[in-house]
Design a protein around this nucleic acid. Sequence first.
DNA 1: CATACATGCTTTCGGTCCAG
DNA 2: CTGGACCGAAAGCATGTATG
Length: 216
Amino acid sequence: MNSFEIYKILKNHFGEVGSWWPKDGPFEVIIGSILTQQSTWTNVEKALQNLKEANVLTPKDIVSLPLNTLKELIKPSGFFNQKAERIRKVSEYLIEKYNGDLDLLFAKDRKNLRDELLQLKGIGKETADSIILYAAEKNEFVVDAYTKRVYSRLKIVEEEIDYENLKNHIIREIPEELLLYQEFHGLIVLLGKNICKKKNPNCKECPLSSKCKFIK
DNA sequence: CATACATGCTTTCGGTCCAG
DNA sequence: CTGGACCGAAAGCATGTATG
C-alpha cells in the first residue's frame, strides 16, 4: 500500500482536516512548534492561550518579557525551562537578523530556510519542517512519532527508520502540493492520537485495519 | 572523526488497579 | 461502582559518553 492510498483512505474516513494548525499568524506557529515538542496539543493550546491573554504575540514581546514570566505562561506545555530558553533565543535571533519581520526569513528558498532554522538551538528536523510547512507555507513534508508508529505498524517501514528516510519514502509516493502535505500530516496526527495510539490502540475503528498486521 | 546510544527535561491527561 | 493513588504516554532536542 502506498502513501497516496493511505492519504485517500484517511481523508475519506476523517473528512477534510482543513487548516487545522492555528492560523493566528506565522510567529504563533513557530512558538507552537517548539511548545509541542514531546507534548500533547491540548497542553500547548493552554500555553498559547496564556501568551495571547498576556498579549505576547511578537518576537519583541517575547524578549521584553522577564524569562520567569515566560516560563510561567508556557508552563502547561511541560519542559517549560528549556522551551522558554529556546523561544527566547529564537526571538532574539529573529529580531537581530530580520528586525522581527518573518517575511524576510520566509523569502528564502526552502533548502536555505531549512538549513538556517536547523542552526538554531531547539529547532531540530521536525520543528524546522513544521515551521516551513505551516508558517512559511512551502512544500516541506513533516514526519513525526505518529507517522513512524503508523508506518511501522503497517509494516511499510522498519520501526527504527530515521527521520529523513521515512520522509523520503513518503514524498516519493505523493504529489508535491502544499495543501496535500498539510492535510496528510494532519490526518496522520488524527489517526495517531485517536486510533493508532501507543498504548490502547482502537484497531476496531481504524480505517487501515484491513491492511495492518499489528491488530490488537 | 563519525556514528550510536543514553539521559535530562516537566506538565497534563487518560488508563489501570485496588480499597472503601 | 466510585474515587483516588499511581503510572506511562504525549508533534523532540541537545548534550555527553561509548564504540568503530
